[in-house]
């Protein structure tokens, strides 16, 4: 019995972490290029609702995932257009993107509130109550495995490939990158849209697997946690994954605390990950003398002629 409970906690942790991690990974790629996109919450919502609508209407999981990713990516190109091409403030544009994403998705999903999904995302094995760790991993669906693949490939992409080096060059010193002949605007645009696409994937995971139904404002702050995770992880994929597991663990733990007989207030437990993130951020900044791993050019628009 104890095993089943523990495995249930592990299972819930992995599911919550998957969602947070995918969105955080997208934001990480965007921020690496020097673009801060505070609209993660809105992009997840767009991906979540479009994926859900497609799934209800077509019953095709692959198509739903694709639609969710593409629509969130298209949506994030609005932020890219306003901040990269038109050089407007990234903080403001990102916040507006959040408001627009949440309200637009609520309007689109109005007729789909309470609808049941005809399909679900397959997993390796169908196990309702896993009793050991292997079974927990087997019972995860394909998006979980995809997120592991994305983690490894993004880490490789950032460190070992030309695309990663270009991204870093643009994010660290866009003027130097420009004088080396890199197309700063294009690189940033692509990074922003890739980030949006991954947020969309997180959204699809939310409505097709994690919850699975659609209702207004169902992202409930997960986009903001994803933003915090990027900092927690010091703009590194593996450390971000550890952060996602920690936040996922706490998200899974809170509703279970009472069944374990703890007297701790669940409301206070819920704020600990944020407090931990702040402390880690401060400690990292002091320890590394101001270098937290943040791209130097983050939030600063690039002007070609200001060379």
């Amino acid at each position: 019995m104890f095993d089943i409970q523990l495995m249930g906690l592990l299972n819930a942790t992995l599911q919550a972490a998957t969602l947070l991690f995918i969105a955080a990974l997208g934001e990480l790629i965007t921020e690496k290029s020097g673009i801060l996109n505070l609209g993660v919450e809105g992009m997840i919502s767009i991906g979540a609702v479009t994926g859900f609508i497609t799934a209800v209407n077509t019953g095709n999981i692959f198509l739903s995932v694709l639609v969710g990713i593409l629509s969130a990516s298209l949506f994030s190109s609005l932020h890219a257009f306003v901040t990269i091409i038109l050089k407007q403030d990234q903080t403001v544009s990102g916040l507006i993107l959040t408001i627009l994403g949440l309200s637009l998705s609520a309007l689109m999903g109005k007729q789909y509130v309470g609808k049941k999904l005809p399909v679900k995302i397959e997993s390796l094995g169908n196990i309702d109550e896993p009793t050991n760790i292997i079974e927990v991993f087997i019972s995860q669906n394909y998006i979980f495995y995809l997120s592991i693949f994305l983690m490894i490939s993004t880490a490789y992409l950032l460190k070992k490939t030309m695309f990663g080096r270009r991204l870093e060059a643009v994010g660290e010193d866009s003027r130097a990158a420009d004088s080396m002949g890199l197309n700063v605007n294009k690189t940033q645009f692509i990074a922003t849209c890739v980030g949006g696409g991954l947020s969309g994937l997180a959204g699809v995971y939310l409505t097709l697997s994690y919850v699975p139904y659609w209702t207004d404002n169902m992202t409930s702050g997960r986009g903001w946690i994803a933003l915090a995770l990027v900092i927690f992880g010091g703009w590194k994929p593996y450390r971000t994954a550890i952060g996602a597991l920690l936040f996922g663990f706490l998200e899974a733990l809170v509703p279970r605390l009472q069944t374990y007989g703890f007297e701790l207030s669940p409301y206070l437990v819920k704020i600990t990950p944020y407090a931990i993130t702040i402390i880690i951020l401060v400690v990292l900044t002091i320890y590394k003398g101001g270098r937290t791993g943040a791209p130097s050019n983050i939030g600063i628009p690039f002007f070609r002629e200001s060379r």
Partner: peptide
Amino acid sequence: GVNEIITTLLFNYIIIG
């Protein structure tokens, strides 16, 4: 020199919590 965008944002969650 800790980035104030992030700390002020995170404090929202702490205070709402």
